[in-house]
């Protein structure tokens, strides 16, 4: 990864001669009351790997992603990021979260702050950077997502696609080792999806470790190193995109893909984003 960051904790992992997986999820369980949402997830993501998580609505994709940075507290199992166990009771969760960037479906920019302040304030408050350094890193990252000219704008004046790119830049400005994306293009008008996916492609090319929940099958096919299909709280199948999307082994995967890739059926699906038109 490039020098857009500087979490002191990262050194430990890069110094490790034989680095383990960047993200390791072991027998993860999560219940909301009686609702057993995640039923034993095992997942490994290597450094620099891009993994797309697909699956029907309600299958637990967001919950899995949110367990990886502890926005949800797992009911059972263990989660490691960069070698440290997040689920350990003594862990400093704020320190761990600095190493994990997260991008939300609804952008969640801070509406009372300008674009630059959205990027600079977290650096100053969380990383203790001074104003000048934070402003410099903010400018660099706005440049990266192609929005240097919006530095002084407020979020409400930006299009959805621009807001999401600012949200990505905000996460990048913290210098994360890992980026999590939860349906980053699902709330966007179809014509704005491409710009956001282009930024994500650029990140993937730069070697960022990424875990992406998405319904964008063309993105998964072209960018992902691995695709994970989830249904009903379990991983049904995983592998290279050509296999999971191109030639799924399981009936549930085939059924899901048929619905997602067939526009007519997909429109019936609630909350489904615009669909990839290719065969």
């Amino acid at each position: 990864m490039s020098e857009h960051g500087g979490s002191g904790l990262r050194k430990e992992t890069t110094a490790d001669p034989a680095p383990g997986p960047e993200i390791l999820v072991e027998q993860l369980h999560k219940s909301f009351g009686d609702n057993h949402v995640l039923r034993g997830i095992d997942l490994e993501i290597r450094q620099g790997e891009v993994v797309c998580v697909i699956g029907p609505s309600g299958s637990g994709k967001s919950t899995l992603l949110r367990c990886v940075n502890l926005l949800e507290q797992p009911s059972g199992g263990r989660v490691f990021v960069g070698g440290s166990e997040l689920t350990h009771p003594d862990v400093d969760i704020d320190a761990v979260r600095r190493r994990i960037g997260m991008v939300f479906q609804q952008f969640n920019l801070f509406p009372h702050l300008s674009v630059t302040e959205n990027l600079a304030l977290p650096q100053r408050r969380v990383l203790g950077r001074d104003k000048a350094a934070a402003g410099r890193v903010a400018a660099e990252n706005l440049e990266r997502v192609g929005l240097a000219d919006k530095a002084k704008a407020f979020p409400a004046s930006l299009s959805g696609g621009q807001q999401q790119r600012v949200a990505i830049a905000r996460a990048l400005a913290m210098g994360p080792e890992v980026m999590l994306f939860d349906e980053p293009t699902s709330a966007l008008d179809p014509e704005l999806v491409g710009d956001v996916l282009a930024v994500m492609r650029m990140l993937a090319d730069e070697g960022m470790t990424m875990m992406v929940v998405t319904h964008e099958m063309s993105f998964a096919r072209e960018v992902a190193d691995r695709v994970v299909f989830m249904d009903d709280g379990v991983i049904v199948e995983e592998g290279p995109p050509a296999e999971v999307i191109g030639n799924p082994r399981h009936e549930r995967t085939r059924h899901f893909l048929a619905r997602v890739l067939d526009p007519a059926a997909a429109q019936v699906e609630e909350g489904m984003p615009p669909v990839d038109k290719r065969p």
Partner: peptide
Amino acid sequence: IPKGQMEAARSLGFSHTRAMVSIIIPQ
């Protein structure tokens, strides 16, 4: 204030208190 504001702040590494002071209370 939408829940996503606190979640975004926490995901950036803000503690609960810092997020309240810097992000939630000003809004």
